[in-house]
């Protein structure tokens, strides 16, 4: 232990600007994420590898209405990767951080809640965008042309990412025990992926109507429309996702806890 020189009584200095604080927060979120080999592989590399395999097997086959395998899986696996980054990874890491007391430790600093959540959401959006770019590049390698309407794709991705982040925080608010988090998160997520057509096209009208109420199928639809059919924004799909996002945010605001042992 050595001697300190800074006199504690003097409180000089100014608060950082909102932008500088967010950059600071996102930087450390990114560092924590990439250093953890497990999270970097499962949430990040996994969808890309999955796409490479699906693309290799089903590239040229007709899925429906003259849409080829690669045309189908480019949007759905992009959606899968965004959901993985924004919902699964977020819900699991948040409940783990709460259980280990990291959130409480963070709450003990002057960092406001908007900074902590803003940092997480921006971090997840960055991961989603990198995954999307990688999948689009692999899709090009398999012979599918680059999409032309990037504006519509970007808006769809941002709204979906924000909505799935909100749902992720809501689920993390409801999970009591972090050991159960991966199971709970997958339990909600996995059946929905199937009925939403993420892995294969669903022709059944009944199933499509059911899946359409939940946020994953609208996300798939919106990306198929923009990526594959080259059309604009799917307004209906955006509305459904936004509604889920708002619902998730409301649950998160009411129920989110920082303390591993609440009163």
């Amino acid at each position: 232990m050595t001697t300190a020189s800074a006199p504690a009584a003097q409180q000089t200095g100014r608060r950082k600007s909102t932008g500088a604080l967010l950059v600071h927060q996102v930087r450390y979120e990114q560092l924590s994420f990439w250093r953890n080999p497990q999270s970097a592989f499962f949430t990040f590399a996994f969808p890309v590898i999955f796409f490479v395999i699906l693309g290799a097997v089903f590239r040229t086959g007709n899925v429906y209405d003259h849409i080829s395998g690669i045309e189908y899986y480019t949007p759905t696996i992009t959606a899968l990767s965004v959901i993985g980054c924004c919902y699964s990874q977020l819900a699991i890491s948040l409940s783990l951080r709460r259980q280990t007391g990291i959130l409480k430790r963070l709450r003990a600093t002057p960092a406001p809640a908007w900074l902590i959540f803003g940092g997480i959401v921006i971090h997840c959006i960055i991961l989603s965008l990198i995954d999307t770019v990688l999948i689009v590049i692999m899709s090009r390698v398999y012979g599918h042309a680059f999409p032309s309407n990037w504006g519509a794709i970007l808006i769809t991705l941002l709204i979906a990412a924000a909505a799935f982040c909100a749902i992720g925080v809501a689920v993390a608010s409801l999970i009591k025990n972090a050991d159960a988090a991966p199971a709970v998160v997958q339990f909600i997520f996995f059946p929905l992926l199937f009925i939403s057509g993420s892995y294969f096209h669903i022709a059944s009208k009944v199933i499509n109507n059911i899946a359409g109420v939940f946020p994953i199928k609208p996300f798939n639809d919106a990306l198929i429309q923009t990526f594959t059919l080259g059309k604009g924004i799917d307004g209906h799909a955006i509305l459904v996702m936004a509604a889920w996002g708002v619902g998730g945010a409301l649950v998160a605001i009411r129920r989110f806890r920082w303390d591993p042992r609440p009163e």
Partner: peptide, 10 residues
């Protein structure tokens, strides 16, 4: 605090 709680990979 009593609990040790910091990001493990930093």
């Amino acid at each position: 605090l009593q609990d040790i709680a910091v990001e493990p990979y930093l």
